[in-house]
């Protein structure tokens, strides 16, 4: 894959992330047919945009996120960030997973610092950045706590702070709030909006929670299952100013129902 394969002149604002025809096939075992997890996904995320992918389990949405993160390879198609092809993982694309991704032997501050150490950030700068991030995620007084002594919601805030530490071009969130209870989830959704507004991050998030997708994102890609395809791309009309009131907006409810209908018809 040379730099020359980049599509030129396709118009529109330059996308931060562009997936073209991304297909993922898993080979079958012992005469079993292989499975097609993703089938020709075209998808774009603009600079500073927060986009969600929703779909039932098995629609390949996490696989797509892993491909964008460089953790898996697409069978076909291209993934570009700022026009450069993705060929592996890197600190320019911070990832947050559903659970079990914090270093259990490291304190909160040490977890956040890990990416800075990998980048070779000078010590004084590191400390400063860790303090800043602890402030952003509201965990300053838990700097020296081990993950095991934190609640599930706090752990995910640490994971987000850690992903933000190397100042990535974009954040990839894989059902980051999927393991949390309903109340904590709502608090963290508002927290994510705040982080997004404060840092101007470009965010691609995978979720199976339709409310969450509509509440957070400016666009929602609805995936169908087996094989995973983009069934629908839906604009969410609420601007950057979001808050709990949005949940009661009739347009919010309409969108939610519309997406849920899509999911139902696409699940087999």
């Amino acid at each position: 894959m040379g730099p020359g394969v980049r599509a030129v002149g396709d118009g529109g604002a330059a996308a931060k992330l562009r997936c073209v025809g991304v297909t993922k096939r898993f080979p079958g075992r012992r005469r079993q047919p292989g499975t097609v997890a993703l089938d020709g996904i075209d998808l774009e995320v603009g600079e500073n945009e927060l986009v969600c992918i929703v779909g039932a389990s098995g629609c390949g949405k996490s696989t797509l996120l892993n491909i964008v993160g460089g953790l898996e390879e697409a069978t076909e198609g291209t993934v570009e960030v700022d026009g450069a092809p993705v060929i592996g993982p890197g600190p320019d694309r911070g990832m947050v997973f559903q659970a079990y991704s914090l270093f259990p032997w490291k304190t909160v501050a040490e977890n956040i610092r890990f990416g800075l150490e990998c980048a070779g950030t000078p010590r004084p700068l590191r400390a400063e950045r860790v303090q800043e991030l602890l402030g952003i995620v509201g965990l300053t007084e838990f700097a020296d706590t081990l993950p095991r002594d934190l609640s599930g919601g706090m752990r995910q805030r640490v994971a987000i702070a850690r992903a933000l530490a190397p100042e990535p071009d974009m954040l990839l969130l894989d059902e980051p709030f999927g393991a949390l209870d309903a109340q904590t989830k709502q608090v963290l959704q508002d927290f994510l909006l705040t982080v997004w507004q404060r840092t101007g991050a470009t965010i691609l998030m995978v979720t199976h929670d339709v409310d969450e997708a509509v509440y957070l994102s400016s666009r929602v890609y609805v995936f169908s299952s087996r094989p995973g395809r983009v069934a629908e791309e839906i604009e969410v009309p609420f601007g950057a100013q979001r808050g709990p009131l949005v949940r009661r907006d009739p347009r919010f409810l309409d969108l939610r129902d519309e997406i849920q209908d899509h999911l139902r018809t696409n699940v087999r």
Binding site: G69, G90, F97, S101, F103, C118, A119, R162, A163, P166
Partner: peptide, 14 residues
Amino acid sequence: PTPLINASYTLGAG
């Protein structure tokens, strides 16, 4: 856990 290793890679670890 695989997420631990994956997270490390995405944080810039070789």
